[in-house]
């Protein structure tokens, strides 16, 4: 078994264990409707996690993805409804904003954490300007897309698989994705081979903006309304999802399939804790405990392997 396969094994196992525990606590979840309910809200989280993964892939960290998704949700629930042309233009401008942010971070050699933290206030402020109080409505096509009932497998699972496969093809299989991951692995070598690291970084950020936009739209399609604070917790959830899915903060080692599984695991952890009748006050802490547990196991596994390789 090679390193990549091992990397994906742990998220798969953690998801399976958690799913088993949920089914054991609540056997009725083992149905078409039950699964859809369990994983429904995981779809936008999975998309946001892919966005975060694209940033982590080039050795940066995005602290603004939560507010960006909220901003997109607000635009989708208002402007896209009332004035579609302007609405989609604003969404496109958001993606362009992400690309510009990536270019700025590379050009001025700024720490991504600081720039994205600053941008998170910009996106948050814009969201409040567009939608001062919770409300708005989902475009009809989006609503029907997110609530479609395919035969046999619920929408949430189909969507997760589609996201995972699309991101995998883009990041892991395409010639373009190789250059992007190369920037994370050894930017100097990519530059010496005649590539523009600036363009590559801007492209990675633009792609992240694109997936963030999809996340916000999917969220509105599910909730049918928006709120300027609707997705604030996505920032930390997406980072946790990437790491849970076998990604690493540096070195361009990311796994799109793992990231989606990580997002599903985190969404499921919330449901699992509800089924355990744990007070919501404790849920965030308990979610953190699950995360620490999984990462501790991963550390132990990789240490054990490291020792064997050294021996």
């Amino acid at each position: 078994m090679n390193r990549d396969q091992l990397r994906i094994l742990l998220p798969v196992v953690s998801l399976a264990v958690l799913l088993g525990a949920v089914f054991w606590l609540q056997p009725r979840a083992m149905s078409y409707l039950g699964l859809n309910l369990l994983f429904n809200l995981a779809v936008p989280i999975a998309l946001a996690t892919i966005a975060q993964m694209l940033i982590i892939m080039v050795n940066d960290l995005d602290l603004s993805i939560g507010t960006f998704v909220s901003f997109v949700a607000c635009v989708t629930a208002t402007l896209v409804q009332t004035d579609p042309v302007l609405g989609y233009l604003v969404l496109a401008a958001g993606i362009a904003g992400y690309a510009a942010m990536g270019a700025l971070i590379h050009l001025r050699n700024l720490p991504a954490i600081v720039v994205t933290l600053g941008m998170s206030f910009v996106w948050g402020g814009l969201a409040v300007l567009i939608l001062p109080s919770p409300g708005g409505a989902s475009p009809e096509w989006l609503r029907s897309l997110m609530t479609v009932k395919p035969p046999l497998v619920p929408m949430a699972i189909v969507a997760s698989v589609v996201i995972a496969v699309a991101a995998h093809l883009l990041v892991r299989r395409s010639a373009f994705g190789v250059v992007l991951r190369g920037v994370g692995g050894n930017a100097a070598s990519v530059e010496r081979a005649g590539w523009s690291v600036l363009k590559a970084k801007a492209a990675a950020y633009a792609l992240a903006g694109f997936f963030g936009t999809l996340s916000g739209m999917a969220l509105v399609g599910l909730t049918t309304a928006a709120d300027a604070n609707i997705a604030l917790r996505y920032t930390l959830l997406s980072i946790a999802g990437v790491i849970l899915g076998g990604g690493e903060f540096t070195g361009g080692r990311v796994s799109p399939v793992g990231a989606v599984i990580g997002a599903l695991t985190l969404a499921l952890a919330g449901s699992f804790l509800s089924f355990m009748r744990l007070s919501p006050d404790w849920q965030i802490g308990a979610q953190g405990a699950i995360l620490i547990l999984v990462l501790a196991v991963r550390l132990l596994v990789s240490r054990g392997r490291g020792r064997r390789v050294a021996a």
């Binding site: 190789v178 991951r181 190369g182 994370g184 100097a188 010496r192 081979a193 005649g194 590539w195």
Partner: peptide
């Protein structure tokens, strides 16, 4: 050029590393 300090991307496979210096490898 083969540089003194190793300049491959450790996170990519051997095949993928071929792609970095050879821009024509697409499609």
């Amino acid at each position: 050029c083969v540089f003194q300090e190793l300049s491959l991307c450790p996170n990519l496979t051997v095949t993928e590393n071929v792609r970095i210096p050879h821009r024509g490898l697409t499609g």
